[in-house]
Design a protein around this nucleic acid. Structure first.
Lengths: 242, 242
DNA sequence: CGTCTGGTTGATCTAGATCAACAGGAGTGG
DNA sequence: CCACTCCTGTTGATCTAGATCAACCAGACG
C-alpha cells in the first residue's frame, strides 16, 4: 500500500506515462521507481557514466553539460518539470553523453535501466509512451533550433530569462518579480550559443531600455508588463511560422 | 507468393524494420505496403494534406518544403535513401506540415496510415522500430543543428554539395566528378539558412580556390581529392566534438 | 598579500544580411 | 520575328550583429 502511495507522489507516472499504463502496470512502475531530492551543485549523472536508468524531473532545474578533452565545457540545455533524462542512453544502450548538473533544488524520479527494460518488454503501451515522448522531444529540438537560428541574441536571452523566471515562480509564488539566476554568465552564453561578452552587452542594452535590472546574479523586473509583452511578440512570431 | 516477392523488392522493410519483425509480420508488412516511382517535380504529399500514410525513400532525393501564407517558401531539409517521411504525422495524427517535393527520380515505399496503425497495435516490436528511428532522427537533428550553428557557410555548403554528389554517384556510378544540382540557389540558401546572394559569393570563392567549377546548375569537381580532403576536415571536427 | 575566477568594458574585425541594380533565358503574346 | 515580362542568378555597396582580443575590476581564498 505504501508503494501505491508513493506512486501517487511521483507525478511523472501519472502525467507522463500513466495514461498508457493499466492499473497493474502502474503499480509495477511505481515499485520500480523511486524518488530523490537533489540539492544545487550535485550531479545526477556524469558524462561517460554507464547509464544506470532514466530520470524524470518533477520539479527544479537541471542543466546538461558537455565537456571536451581540453577541459572546456558548455551547458547544452536546461531540463525542468516533466522532462525525462537518459532514456536515449537506456534504449540505445549507450553511456551518458553529458553531465546532469542540478541547478536548483530538484525532485527527481528514477527508474533503473534493467527494470525499465523489463517493463518495456512486458508492456508495449509503455513503448508507445516513450515513442510519443521522443516525437515531442524531436519537435521541441527542431523549433528550438529554428529559434536559435532566426531570432537575435536579445530575443533568445529574454526567452531564457522568462523560462528561468517561470521555473522559480511556480515554486516560490514570488510576486516580487525578482529572482536569482541559477547559472553563471558563461553558461547562459553557452545555452544561447554566444559569448559571455555578448551577454554582458545585451544586459546593458536591456538595462538602458529599463526592462530589467541586474545586480550580480539577481534579476529585477522593473516593468514586468513590458517584459511579458516583449516576450509574447517572440512567441507569437514563432508559432505563426510553425 | 508475388506478395513475398514484392516484400523482397522493398528494401526498407529489410533494412529499416525487418530486424524487429518476425516472418509472419514481415509478410503482413509487405502486403500493407507498396512501392511507387516518382519523377522529379512531383509531390509525394502536400503541406496541409491529411496524412494518408508513411513513406520510406528507397532511392532518389526528396526535398521538404514549407510555405507560409504570404507565398514565401523555403526548403527545410533533404531526405534520401532510407529516410522515412510522415511517421510523425501518422503517430501524432496531424496533417503534413510541409510538402515533399521529388527532386530526382525516386523509388518510394508507402504504407497506409490505418494499416500501419493496425500493425503497430499488433506488433510491439514495430513500435520499438519506430522508437529507435525517432531516437536516431533526434540525434541527427541535434548534430545537424549544432553544425548549422558552428561551421561557417562555406563549410556547410561544401557538406551539402558532397551529400548531393554522393546521392547521384551511387545511382549513376559517375566517374566524371560532374553532376547537376537538383535544386535552385534559392533552395540551397534555405537549406543552409542563408541568402541566395551569399551562396553566389561562396561559389565565387570556391571557384577562385580552384576547388569546384559551376556552370549553371552543373557542378564540376576540378580537384576531387582536395575537395574530399576539405570535407573530411569538417567531418572529423564534427565527430570529435560529439 | 598575490593569485584566480567571473564578470565587465573597449577597440577592432568579419561573416553574412540587406538593398539595389542588372544580366541572361524562357515564355508569351502580338 | 520582335518586344515584353517574369524568373533566376549575379554583382556591388553598405550595414550590423556578434566574435575576438585585450585590458581591467572585484570578490574569494589560500
Amino acid at each position: 500500500m505504501s508503494q501505491v502511495c508513493r506512486s501517487r507522489g511521483c507525478s511523472c507516472k501519472a502525467t507522463e506515462w500513466g495514461h498508457v499504463l493499466d492499473e497493474m502496470d502502474c503499480e509495477l512502475f511505481a515499485r520500480a521507481s523511486h524518488e530523490r531530492v537533489y540539492e544545487p551543485g550535485m550531479n545526477i549523472f556524469m558524462q561517460g557514466d554507464n547509464c544506470s536508468g532514466v530520470y524524470c524531473i518533477q520539479s527544479g532545474l537541471v542543466g546538461l553539460r558537455r565537456s571536451d578533452d581540453n577541459g572546456n565545457s558548455a551547458m547544452l540545455r536546461l531540463s525542468q518539470n516533466g522532462d525525462v533524462l537518459g532514456y536515449r542512453a537506456v534504449i540505445g544502450k549507450r553511456q551518458h553523453r553529458n553531465t546532469a548538473e542540478v541547478l536548483t533544488r530538484s525532485r527527481v524520479c528514477f527508474i533503473e535501466a534493467a527494470r525499465l527494460t523489463m517493463l518495456l518488454q512486458r508492456n508495449p503501451n509503455l513503448k508507445e509512451g516513450f515513442l510519443q515522448r521522443a516525437l515531442v522531444d524531436l519537435t521541441t529540438t527542431e523549433t528550438n533550433c529554428a529559434e536559435q537560428m532566426t531570432r537575435g541574441l536579445q530575443a533568445r536571452f529574454l526567452h531564457l530569462l522568462f523560462r528561468l523566471y517561470q521555473n522559480v515562480e511556480a515554486q516560490q509564488d514570488d510576486r516580487e518579480h525578482v529572482f536569482d539566476l541559477p547559472v553563471q554568465r558563461k553558461d547562459i552564453a553557452a545555452l544561447l550559443g554566444a559569448t559571455p561578452e555578448s551577454i554582458s552587452r545585451i544586459i546593458n542594452r536591456l538595462e538602458e531600455q529599463g526592462l530589467v535590472r541586474f545586480v550580480g546574479r539577481r534579476v529585477i523586473f522593473s516593468n514586468m508588463g513590458r517584459f511579458r509583452a516583449k516576450i509574447q511578440i517572440g512567441i507569437e512570431a514563432a508559432t505563426a511560422e510553425a
